[in-house]
């Protein structure tokens, strides 16, 4: 607190170059990623996905032995059991991601906005000359990095193990199913960000977004004809994409469009909610 420092710390002159909104957005994304890194989320979430990804092919591989050890089956049953196809195992892996993976992602993202607002940290950030789109967008972007990174790591591990133990699956099927499933998880994460803005309670946000996702896929499962175009059908399309017996009808394109529309809508609604409650801008 020296006097000379007082004069150097010129509060009057604007001595710095201004960066654009993009620069501020980049700074915010950087902060979010740093937070994910320091809280070890960027490490443990991919590890959990890798674990889930490896477990499916390994347990399929050992299933006959495990059954035999149990020993209650008559001779010959195991030998005659159909061996699972590699594609089948990968589709089962995606289903694992759809339950445990969804749960983990929703719980990891549940406090992304409400946590900062509840602690009061958000008010120090929101008085800065930033756009609310950048604020929500940066959190969303960081969560997508986590989601896509974890999904890709887990799915590629599953693919490698499946190729090793069960049977190879063409890489292009992996890529297409990964992209479709990634969109499905993106929808989940976006809804979690939205509910985290709307609700004070993180648990409420996780519950609501998982509920939405469950309802989407339930409806698409019950009414495949009427609601085949809805985002709930996406996970089904991803299973089909890897099973190679794809029946990508006209609906497939519409499912993607409707998912993208809901994602965009949820983000816009999150910004609107934040503006209404904090009234910045």
């Amino acid at each position: 607190m020296s006097v000379s420092a007082a004069h150097n710390g010129n509060v009057e002159k604007r001595s710095f170059n201004r960066t654009s909104e993009i620069g501020r957005f980049a700074a915010m994304v950087e902060k979010e990623l740093l937070e994910l890194l320091r809280s070890f989320k960027l490490l443990w979430v991919p590890l959990v996905f890798i674990l889930l990804g490896i477990m499916q092919p390994v347990s399929s591989y050992f299933m006959p032995i495990i059954l035999e050890q149990a020993g209650n089956l008559p001779e010959g049953v195991i030998a005659n059991m159909p061996k699972p196809q590699g594609a089948e195992v990968l589709a089962q892996t995606l289903q694992q991601f759809g339950t445990l993976g969804v749960l983990v992602l929703a719980l990891v993202c549940m406090g992304v906005v409400s946590g900062e607002r509840n602690s009061g940290a958000a008010s120090l950030i929101l008085v800065k000359p930033i756009s609310l789109y950048s604020y929500i967008g940066s959190k969303w972007t960081a969560m997508l990095v986590l989601t896509w990174g974890s999904l890709a790591a887990g799915y590629l591990a599953a693919w490698y193990y499946t190729g090793l133990l069960i049977g190879s699956v063409p890489f292009k099927d992996i890529v297409s199913s990964l992209l479709i499933y990634g969109l499905w998880l993106t929808l989940l994460v976006t809804l979690t960000v939205f509910f985290s803005t709307m609700l004070k309670s993180p648990a409420g946000a996780a519950f609501s977004s998982i509920g939405c996702i469950a309802v989407f896929s339930l409806l698409a499962g019950i009414f495949p004809k009427q609601l085949g175009w809805s985002p709930g059908a996406l996970s089904g399309f991803a299973y089909q994409a890897v099973s190679a017996s794809i029946m990508k009808g006209d609906y497939f394109g519409w499912a993607i469009v409707s998912a993208l529309a809901i994602i965009a809508g949820a983000l816009a609604a999150a910004v609107w909610l934040l503006r209404r409650s904090s009234s910045v801008e």
Binding site: F16, T19, K31, L34, G120, S123, L124, K128, P129
Partner: peptide
């Protein structure tokens, strides 16, 4: 504010740098 809340996982210096960047300063400035 009366009792400011920051990000507890950041260092003090990092936070001030972050605040500056949010105001449109370059990382170096």
């Amino acid at each position: 504010p009366q009792s400011p809340a920051f990000y507890n996982w950041m260092t003090g210096l990092e936070y001030v740098i972050y605040a500056g960047r949010l105001c449109g300063m370059t990382a170096v400035d």
